[in-house]
């Protein structure tokens, strides 16, 4: 219901250039669409200067009173409130009118974050959009914006949001597969795309095995994957720790070829553990 009211007010704005407001010798439009032609009627006789001033533009014309002053397409294109002063031989006349954004979305300002994140996070990708017309005026009438996030597998998350004061936002989960996701915002004929790089998450189900290798013990993990099955990239560090009484020795080993592997001197009876970041793996009590 509220949405309908918004659209109704938007439609009312659309016909506003047809309405006029009269103030003494001046007949002004109530609103003019950005870039559209418009006219201002004057009454009386003689010469005068007509000023139209806003924060986006200023226009000054010499006019013959009693004539309608026509302004061609493209005269006023910056949306906002404009004051009008008609200065002739007699008392000056004044008034004001609005220039409203042109119809049709021409440009989207799209802020998408982050550009890189782990897979499988809830509401971790956000997008905010501002909609503009062809003259870079913020389109303040409610406008539907559709957001779509699609992963390498082609599965997409979609949502349509109606702008409020020209802005709309959404949030999506990062997908389960690593790779480059396309994050697209569409409104009217305008479309903007961002790429979100999704990388594997933390290791999941980290396990290792131990076997004697001469005087040392060879420790090796199983292929390391995140909880969605994506291989954790080489270079991530896995920490092996051997504890015996108060003695502790550790080794930080980068993943290579999908696994981490090292030979360590380990006493009989030591407790060996493996971890990566905040993720703990299994433990092994080393016995001869």
């Amino acid at each position: 219901m509220r949405l309908l009211a918004f659209f109704a007010s938007g439609l009312a704005l659309g016909v506003a250039p047809l309405a006029f407001a009269q103030s003494g010798n001046l007949t002004l439009p109530k609103a003019v669409e950005a870039g559209a032609a418009f006219s201002i009627a004057t009454a009386g006789s003689g010469k005068a200067t007509l000023y139209i001033a806003g924060l986006g533009q200023v226009v000054k014309r010499q006019v013959d009173l009693g004539q309608t002053v026509n302004f061609p397409v493209g005269t006023l294109y910056s949306a906002g409130r404009y004051v009008v002063v008609l200065q002739g031989d007699q008392e000056p006349e004044s008034g004001e009118f609005d220039v409203v954004p042109a119809k049709g979305v021409a440009e989207l300002s799209f802020l998408a974050r982050p550009s890189r994140l782990p897979v499988g996070l809830h509401d971790a990708i956000t997008g905010a959009v501002y909609v503009f017309d062809a003259y870079k005026n913020l389109m303040v009438a409610p406008t539907p914006v559709s957001f779509e996030l699609s992963g390498p597998s082609g599965a997409a998350q979609k949502r349509t949001v109606v702008t409020r004061f020209g802005a709309a936002w959404t949030e999506f989960d990062s997908t389960a597969r690593q790779g480059a996701d396309k994050f697209v915002a569409n409104a009217g004929a305008a479309s903007t795309r961002r790429v979100i790089s999704q990388v594997p998450g933390d290791p999941c189900g980290l396990t290792m095995t131990a076997k004697r290798d001469g005087k040392q013990v060879e420790l090796q993990t199983a292929p390391i994957r995140d909880c969605s099955g994506n291989p954790v990239p080489d270079g991530e560090v896995v920490t092996f720790t051997a504890s015996f009484g108060d003695d502790q020795s550790t080794a930080d080993v980068p993943i290579k070829g999908g696994i981490a592997k090292i030979d360590m001197p380990i006493q009989d009876g030591a407790l060996i553990s493996v971890a990566s970041g905040v993720v703990m793996g299994n433990q092994i009590r080393w016995e001869k």
């Binding site: 802020l111 974050r113 956000t126 997008g127 905010a128 004061f165 802005a167 936002w169 949030e171």
Partner: peptide, 11 residues
Amino acid sequence: VFYSPEGLSLE
């Protein structure tokens, strides 16, 4: 009326 989710704009 609006603070964008990434904190880079406010309306």
